[in-house]
């Protein structure tokens, strides 16, 4: 969540800032992947940046020379390695940064939503590498709003809110509780899709089935949700597969609707507003 304290926590753990209270004890070497592109010099070539960024992470020239080929190969930037970084696309420089940071063998790795770099193919590749690292006894501290990624990658989770630990434990337990609480707080929208494509004749209040983790879109109209027995039930009580009834004055017969759960805006570490699509469901009226 916004201001939950995750970035601060990661910065404290990686030593970037000192805690005002308490201590951090760390066993092992840390590689933080906080802001991927920072430390790159746009006027340097990819090759020079490998050494600059590597030195920032505390590696010696000999070590970087040893790992150089591996880094370039993983980044798939062989052709562009002598091109200045300012001529790289965002995806290319992110690939390079990710390759440098993961080429080394840290014992603890800190990831702040960096698995969203590059194209789909590279994302998959980087996820694979993370999993390989996990198999090699590397501890990964992973921060994300994308619950699916958290579930995929982690076995333990901490749920933070307003700088406090709400819950910690096994990943499924924590994620499930988090998901329910989000339902409670978030807003629900409906958006009508193109009526011309509509073929179904549907009554306005019709049972629909909630399915989580489907794609969501942003809409504008508020709706009211009722449970299958037409009573108002707090949102956190709903679970996967529950039947709900949608009420909204503007809903019309014979239209197709999508229902969206919109989780609002968060700020990333640079203070940019980002929409998260973490919890949500799309549905439509069915006969």
């Amino acid at each position: 969540m916004n201001g939950a304290g995750k970035s601060t926590l990661l910065k404290v753990i990686s030593g970037v800032i000192k805690p005002t209270e308490g201590d951090v004890s760390i066993k092992g070497s840390i590689v933080p992947l906080l802001e991927l592109g920072s430390g790159f010099d746009p006027e340097y070539t990819g090759r020079e940046n490998i050494f600059l960024k590597g030195s920032l992470l505390g590696y010696s020239r000999e070590y970087l020379e040893l790992k150089y080929d591996e880094i370039v190969e993983f980044s798939e930037l062989e052709e562009f390695i002598d091109v200045k970084l300012k001529n790289y696309s965002t995806g290319m420089s992110s690939r390079l940064a990710f390759s440098i940071a993961t080429a080394v063998n840290p014992q603890i790795m800190i990831l702040d939503e960096v698995l969203s770099v590059g194209d789909a193919k590279f994302r998959e590749k980087s996820l694979d590498r993370m999993k390989t690292l996990l198999d090699q006894d590397v501890s990964v501290l992973f921060v994300s709003h994308t619950l699916q990624q958290v579930r995929d990658l982690c076995n333990k989770a901490i749920w933070l809110e307003n700088g406090r630990v709400i819950m910690q434990g096994s990943v499924d337990e924590v994620c499930d509780s988090y998901e329910r609480s989000v339902l409670l707080k978030e807003k629900i929208y409906v958006k009508s899709s193109d009526p011309r494509k509509n073929d179904a004749k549907v009554p306005v209040d019709k049972d629909i089935i909630l399915t989580f983790n489907a794609p969501i879109k942003v809409g504008t109209n508020w709706v009211e949700l009722l449970s299958a027995n037409r009573t108002s039930v707090p949102l956190e009580k709903y679970v996967d597969g529950d039947k709900v009834i949608i009420k909204h004055p503007k809903l019309q017969h014979g239209m197709r609707y999508n229902l969206h759960l919109h989780t609002g805006c968060f700020e990333d570490m640079e203070g940019n507003k980002v929409n998260t699509h973490s919890t949500g469901f799309t549905t439509e009226f069915k006969d």
Binding site: G15, S38, G58
Partner: peptide, 9 residues
Amino acid sequence: SAILRSVYV
């Protein structure tokens, strides 16, 4: 500052 914010040096 950008570097100091993202990695311990």
